[in-house]
Amino acid sequence: MPSAQSCPIRQVLQTLDNDILQGKERALRLSFIALLAGGHVLLEDLPGLGKTTLALALASVLGLSFGRIQCTSDLLPSDITGLSIYERDSGRFRFVKGPIFNNILLADEINRAMPKTQSAMLEAMEERRVTVEGTTHVLPDPFLVIATQNPVEQIGTFPLPESQLDRFLLVTGVGYPPEELEKDIIRNGGIHDRIRTLTPLLGEGQLITARKAVQTVHLGNKLVDYIYALVAASREHPYLITGLSTRGALNLASAARAAAYLEGRDYVIPEDIQSLAVPVGAHRLILRPEHESLPKTEVLQSIVHSVPVPRV
């Protein structure tokens, strides 16, 4: 396993964290984990906290193509996937690719789109291909969807059902930047313009190599047991109707592998799992009606604290 200096992915993460996207360390790291583990991210936060900036910076630095969809209630599935148009000159239909045919797709305010559109997009995320009028189009690889939703707005939204939420590898917030940093931003303006001129630090091939390396990270039997114990505890928790699904456990394992890789280890330790349990697991839980007011993250954190860590 290469050290932090020699592994390009970790270098990029450090550069981004230190120079460009200060104060978004956690969201950035999780995005990288999602990218390496082959999953998608849902950012739950208020507008104007730099979600787009994050996605854009990620795309430019990694040398990946970037697409963006602003979800509204009249957004149609074809606005995402693309559509066939008739070319009068040739007398044929030509398929015009939608924004989903990009490596990194930012789906802003996904909860504003109609369920039909949501499910079309989420299906594409899962299948990594789009079928339009009988023709199947494979989506580019790597493919990362960063969806956002505003947790406060309620009117005119279509909250994602739990089954759809399950398709996101992890859900997290961005949070306000630290005070000093925010003052800096106020003083000097954002980095929006600078991002467009960022040079790619990584080739596409390197990212794919890294993803292959992540898959070889060792997940010991003790940690498999640990993940299972967490999942089992969530299923038996008195506040919950349903705990973590098998997909949730699988996602937790692959996210933990990616986290270990980012730490420069070729084996997973319990801390990798603990740090990812809430982002990977919380959105998959369904609370009992009488406990609905409780934050899911807190419930899951309490579950993590109830399961002993494997030490020997």
């Binding site: 330790i269 319990p270 801390e271 603990q274 993590v304 604290h305 109830s306 002993p308 860590v309 030490r311």
Partner: peptide
Amino acid sequence: VPHYIGLQT
């Protein structure tokens, strides 16, 4: 040391 604290922590 609580049982949920990993060694690295």
